[in-house]
């Protein structure tokens, strides 16, 4: 039964992907890639990866679509008709695919409990984390405690990407024409956007509340700093799309957002340094409180807060610079 659902969803993914290649209207291709992300999120749920599915739905179907659309309004919506025959790429792709499929023949069967991946490390997380960390969601305890170094690294990578985007785009070009899709100025009077405004006003608080739930319920259910941050960012971007970039930037000035992107990494690394000052290893939370389980829970909460602040700051910063970019005249 389950494999039929997998097959159906994978079929939908393949059809969507093939349609994306064939379309030359980039606008439609971007919308389809958003649908692609949503379907793959459904597939991730059936594969038991609920945390990942939450992330994929918020990032793939939400934020990256908005960023792509913002870019399209700056670079044009049409793809040119290809001039070359794509024989060489096709050959490369077919050969690579054949090699990879040949590789899967030696792989252990799908879903077998005694596969090599399931023998090492993972059993320890599943059996011991309940006692050592004291929270039910194993993904959260691995992410924030057992593999805290990795997560600190990833958070730093996101911060670095924000710095890169700011270096590329923050200057602003001299020729002026406002980004029509995202940055258009709206008059404050009541116009035919009233339905959108009222709808957004009703939705945004609940989206933000859900973000907080995902953040603080991460110990018991799917969620965590990464997911909460992108849900928060998606809610705020919705607000900015409906009410205009100017209004959004008055609510949350760019300087504050830039500060957020840096502050989260500092919180994360600061906790590591605090634990070192207390005489234990970097990011070993046992130094924080006397009871080992309480210490772990407190450490995880603080670290997830750092992740939330950085990722939220990063997403909004990127949105601000892409949406605020003015189109250059040719």
């Amino acid at each position: 039964m389950e494999s039929i659902i997998h097959l159906g969803l994978l079929g939908l993914l393949s059809v969507t992907a093939i349609t994306i290649i064939r379309l030359r209207t980039l606008f439609a291709a971007v919308m389809l890639s958003s649908i692609y992300s949503l379907v793959s999120a459904a597939l991730l749920v059936t594969l038991d990866a609920v945390d990942v599915a939450l992330m994929e739905a918020a990032v793939g179907a939400g934020i990256s679509t908005v960023l792509m659309l913002g870019t399209l309004s700056l670079v044009g919506r049409k793809e040119k008709r290809p001039v070359r025959q794509p024989l060489l790429p096709l050959f490369v792709v077919v050969v690579t695919g054949a090699v990879l499929v040949y590789g899967t023949l030696d792989m252990p069967g799908f879903g077998a409990p005694d596969n090599p991946v399931h023998r090492h490390v993972a059993p320890r997380y599943l059996q011991e984390s309940g006692r050592e960390i004291g929270i039910p969601n194993v993904v959260t305890s691995v992410l924030a405690s057992y593999r805290g170094y990795d997560t600190l690294g990833e958070t730093t990578v996101i911060f670095a990407a924000v710095v890169g985007v700011l270096l590329l785009l923050a200057g602003g070009s001299r020729h002026t024409e406002q980004n029509e899709v995202l940055g258009a100025e709206q008059s404050a009077t009541f116009d035919d956007r009233v339905i959108l405004r009222v709808g957004a006003k009703m939705l945004v608080p609940f989206i933000l509340l859900f973000g907080l739930y995902v953040q603080f319920h991460a110990d018991y259910g799917p969620g965590g700093g990464f997911q909460a941050a992108v849900i928060f960012a998606a809610g705020f971007i919705l607000y900015a799309l409906v009410f205009g970039l100017k209004v959004a930037q008055r609510v949350l000035p760019p300087a504050v957002v830039y500060l957020c992107a840096a502050l989260g990494v500092l919180i994360f690394a600061g906790i590591g340094l605090t634990t070192m000052a207390e005489g234990t290893n970097f990011l070993d939370y046992h130094a924080l409180l006397r009871d080992p389980q309480d210490a772990q829970v407190a450490g995880i909460m603080l670290v997830e807060l750092g992740v939330l602040v950085t990722v939220f700051g990063a997403m909004i910063t990127i949105f601000y610079v892409v949406a605020g970019r003015r189109r250059s005249r040719p």
Binding site: D51, V52, M55, V59, E154, I318
Partner: peptide, 16 residues
């Protein structure tokens, strides 16, 4: 749970 943790962070890095 291990692949879930790896991919979770990979998605955010992907959007970055």
């Amino acid at each position: 749970p291990l692949p879930h943790v790896l991919i979770l962070t990979a998605i955010v890095v992907g959007v970055a």
